[in-house]
Design a protein around this nucleic acid. Structure first.
Ligand SMILES: Cc1cn([C@H]2C[C@H](O)[C@@H](COP(=O)(O)OP(=O)(O)OP(=O)(O)O)O2)c(=O)[nH]c1=O
Ligand SMILES: [Mg+2]
Length: 837
DNA sequence: TCTCAAAATGAG
DNA sequence: CTCATT
DNA sequence: GAGA
């Protein structure tokens, strides 16, 4: 006899799960997990260009917060997640607690019998080191060089050799003699030789040699066309070579010595070579460009080039940021370097002077001054201001204001700023009545077919505040879980240092989510300065947000090149204090704003946003009127821009959900349909509607093909209006549909529908519930334990290659229920509302 | 000084 | 493959 | 950019 379960009602029962001691991580685990959360957050923030967008561009007409997001409730502290993840063990905790407070623990979400788990996975914590072979076997450092004469070829001549165009005139840093690229003379050999002795430098040359060898091989092979299917990488390079113009033909790029430079720059070498440029790691008399992403002063740069000063470079040599190359590649033509100079000529704030340490400093400067006046551009030194004195890193009268602010510019400040940015997008709320637990599939002991939904989930909407004043809405009541958690917390004595004393809701304490902005000070305000006024910080935060834009707005590929995010912030504080009137600042901000706005278009990312700007687009209207080569989805994004940019009130999410669910149930009464994402986490509003669909397959039937009919039905009803991305296989068990729909007559809303095999319900719940940070944290945590977690399940034995490709599938150890997965990971199950670190 | 940073899908 | 997105 |  088989039980096919209808979608179980969400309701109480997670008390039981959470009550079991085994769901509580040890302190070590907690701390470890906490670390993952922090890492993920940091990483996310670095990468998240979008964090700036809402803050810097004017709110959309229908945006709920016209006054800018930074004034929104800063709902949490940087450490809030740590406090509920890093709770110490709970020795005093007894299930009896729950029993008394919540007597109805008997039934629900059936915790699956551990037997299955145990058989598959004997130890909850397998020794990852022994079971998982080393990954990343192919890091550059590990590649044995085929060439055993390090230093024999520190420069490579790749690509056609033409006359150097336009170089040798008064542009750029260099003042030295320029030679034909075919006969370059090494520069600065004395110091350079010193570098050569260093181990890592040898590694660099080694890999540079390998690179040159590989590449020349590729080019010759590539001419022959038809790559063997084996060498994809090389095939790609070759094909690019054949198709792309040689934008950099005749140019010669020098990559200054860097720590770990080989690994960092390998792909860059390849790119330049692909574009017809030459690459060298030793400056010589033929180089035309030095790739130098700002960060080090000119003197240090010179040093790493083995020069006493940059003026020794060939005349006209330009120090450019990598972004220039990236943009050239994107545009497939040479762009003006002016916006990409390593040492912007007009910067009032940087201190790019070729400085000090070199004895010939004065002459250097005057020389460069002259050179700069000749052409009036491309000079890296800040010659518009007093070059000698004020630009010293150590002392500068201009920087006095900065000193005042410096107490804020430490980690705490940046973090608090970051958190503010984050908090501004996170307006989920805790509901007192938490009935959003979704049961597990296959828990046939639940036998009873429960009524589709009890209304408690809906009831909570009444508690959901609708506007900015939501902090005034008292959370109605604490349920058993709240009581238990806060009790545990109090009993253990873990009171988060940022707990909000005046919070009326104990749950807030235990989650550290403080819905009351006035009670929620900035981290830096609390820790650093004892300055209770948050307005300066707020103001600073805004400014820094804008600058964060500017900083990340460029298409620098490597997301981890946070290079001096901190430093960057400090500098930019300085920048906007001292040089906010500067033309460059304005221009950059203007560009960043526009780019951010474009990036808000669905389907437009930072790459295309930059490209649009480059092509001259400045407003959304531009995109509507002229042709910019938008893709299908992007056109929808432009068309519905104002609707899609706004958030969806919870009630409307529910309406859409109900429409979708009823349509689905009409097609098959046994399907499970659940609304996920920020809604499940209790958000007051959502950016989109995330729907998860599956079906109990115990009777041999599945939801295969349902998505097609569902979409069709909904389209007929006028609920679904646009499709952006459709399943690769409509008949698969696992399908993802993304598009746009609306409550008929209402605004257009983004809708994601994910169908999944029944036995992946748990993993999919975790994935689709999020939030993003939570997922990444959990996945990182899993990875550190030797597992791999994805939307399908928790795996062990997954091996990945150097590029992150999966080499081994591994074996699945859990996927059916959330609890399975949390349990194996040794982490307690968390209520969706708690999954928003 | 080296290593790691989540993991996946779909469009083009 | 890159880009955008979840 | 933080930790081994
Ligand atoms: C964006 C993103 C989402 N997810 C998961 C977690 C999310 O909760 C879930 C749905 O994604 P989203 O709908 O993008 O995010 P959300 O629902 O949490 O928030 P909102 O819609 O209000 O903006 O997908 C990831 O795993 N990685 C990601 O990068
Ligand atoms: Mg969502």
């Amino acid at each position: 006899m088989t039980f096919v379960t209808r979608q179980p009602s969400l309701w109480e029962g997670y008390e039981e799960i959470i009550s079991s001691d085994q769901y509580f991580e040890t302190e070590q685990e907690a701390q470890s997990y906490d670390n993952e959360v922090r890492l993920a957050i940091q990483h996310k923030l670095v990468m998240e260009h979008g964090s700036c967008t809402k803050d810097t561009i004017p709110a959309a007409p229908n945006s709920t917060n016209g006054e800018g997001v930074t004034t929104d409730p800063p709902s949490k502290h940087p450490i809030d997640q740590s406090t509920f993840y890093s709770r110490p063990p709970l020795p005093s905790f007894r299930p009896s607690h729950i029993q008394t407070s919540t007597p109805r623990t008997r039934s629900t979400p059936h915790v699956p019998t551990p037997s299955t788990i145990g058989s598959i996975l004997p130890a909850p914590r397998p020794p990852s080191t022994s079971r998982i072979p080393a990954r990343q076997i192919d890091t550059p450092q590990a590649i044995p060089s085929p060439i055993d004469t390090p230093g024999s070829s520190t420069s490579a001549m790749i690509g056609g050799v033409e006359g150097v165009r336009g170089y040798g005139s008064g542009e750029g840093e260099g003042k030295g003699k320029r030679d034909d690229p075919s006969t370059p003379m090494p520069l600065g050999t004395a110091i350079f030789n010193k570098l050569k002795s260093r181990q890592d430098f040898q590694a660099l040359t080694k890999h540079f040699d390998k690179f040159t060898k590989d590449f020349s091989k590729v080019t010759s092979e590539g001419k022959g066309e038809k790559m063997g299917s084996k060498k994809k990488m090389k095939g790609k390079i070759a094909s690019v070579l054949l198709t792309k113009e040689k934008v950099f033909e005749g140019l010669r790029f020098c990559f200054p010595y860097e720590v770990n430079g080989a690994r960092k720059n390998k792909t860059r070498w390849e790119i330049i070579a692909q574009m017809g440029g030459q690459v060298t790691i030793q400056p010589d008399t033929a180089i035309t460009h030095v790739i130098h992403d700002s960060g080090r002063s000119a003197s240090i740069l010179a040093n790493s080039l083995g020069l006493r000063s940059l003026s020794e470079l060939p005349q006209g040599t330009v120090c450019v940021k990598w972004d220039w190359v990236a943009q050239c590649k994107l545009a497939n033509r040479l762009l003006d370097t002016e916006q990409f100079l390593s040492f912007p000529k007009n910067s009032l704030t940087r201190n790019p002077t070729i400085l000090s340490k070199a004895p010939s400093r004065m002459t250097d400067i005057s020389e460069q001054l002259r050179a700069g006046q000749m052409k009036g551009k491309s000079l890296s030194i800040s010659r518009k201001r007093e070059p000698t004195a004020s630009d010293s890193e150590t002392q500068s009268p201009i920087k006095r204001p900065k000193m005042l602010l410096l107490p804020w510019t430490n980690v705490s400040v940046t973090k608090s700023v970051i958190v503010n940015v984050k908090a501004s997008r996170s307006n989920e709320v805790h509901e007192g009545a938490s009935n959003t637990n979704i049961s597990n599939p296959g828990s046939s002991t639940m036998g009873v077919v429960q009524e589709i939904y009890n209304t408690k989930n809906v009831d909570t909407e009444h508690d959901l505040p609708s506007g900015p004043g939501w902090e005034d809405v008292p959370v109605k009541e604490r349920d058993g879980l709240d009581e238990m958690i806060s009790g545990v917390k109090g009993g253990i004595g873990v009171v988060p240092e940022d707990a909000v004393p005046n919070s009326s809701n104990p749950q807030e304490i235990n989650t550290n989510l403080n819905p009351n902005p006035s009670a929620n000070g900035w981290k830096c305000g609390q820790v650093n300065d004892g300055n209770p006024h948050e307005s300066p910080n707020e103001w600073l935060a805004k400014k820094l947000d804008e600058m964060h834009d500017l900083y990340l707005g460029q298409t620098d590929k490597n997301p981890f090149s946070v290079r001096g995010y901190r430093r960057g912030i400090a500098d930019r504080i300085d920048e906007f204090l001292t040089g906010s009137k500067g033309r460059e600042y304005y221009e950059n901000t203007e560009k960043a704003k526009t780019v951010c706005m474009f990036k808000d278009i669905y389907g437009v990312g930072k790459s295309f946003a930059n490209e649009l700007y480059r092509r001259g687009a400045r407003t959304i209207e531009d995109l509507r009127e002229k042709e910019y080569g938008l893709s299908k989805g992007q056109k929808i994004g432009v068309e519905l821009y104002s609707d899609l940019i706004s958030r969806i009130p919870r009630t409307e999410c529910k309406q859409l959900y109900d429409l979708i669910r009823s349509s689905a149930l009409d097609l098959d009464p046994m399907v499970w349909v659940e609304i996920m994402g920020s809604y499940r986490r209790g958000g007051v509003d959502s950016g989109d509607v995330d729907i998860l669909i599956t079906r109990d397959n115990s009777d041999g039937k599945t939801h295969k093909g349902l998505i097609k009919s569902l979409v069709n039905d909904l389209r007929k009803k006028g609920v679904i209006t646009h499709e952006m991305s459709t399943p690769s296989d409509w008949t698969a068990l696992e399908t993802k549909w993304m598009g746009v729909g609306r409550v008929p007559g209402g605004k257009y809303r983004r809708i994601d529908i994910l169908c999944i095999p029944f036995d992946q319900w748990g993993a999919a719940l975790i994935y689709f519930t999020g939030n993003e940070i939570f997922n990444r944290s959990l996945r990182l945590y899993a990875r550190k334990k030797g597992y791999s977690l994805n939307q399908r399940g928790l795996y062990i034995g997954v091996m990945r290659g150097p590029d992150g490709n999966k080499i081994t599938e591994g074996e699945i150890v859990a996927s059916k229920t959330e609890e399975d997965i949390f349990k194996i990971l040794g982490i307690r199950w968390r209520h969706p509302h708690q999954r928003r670190p």
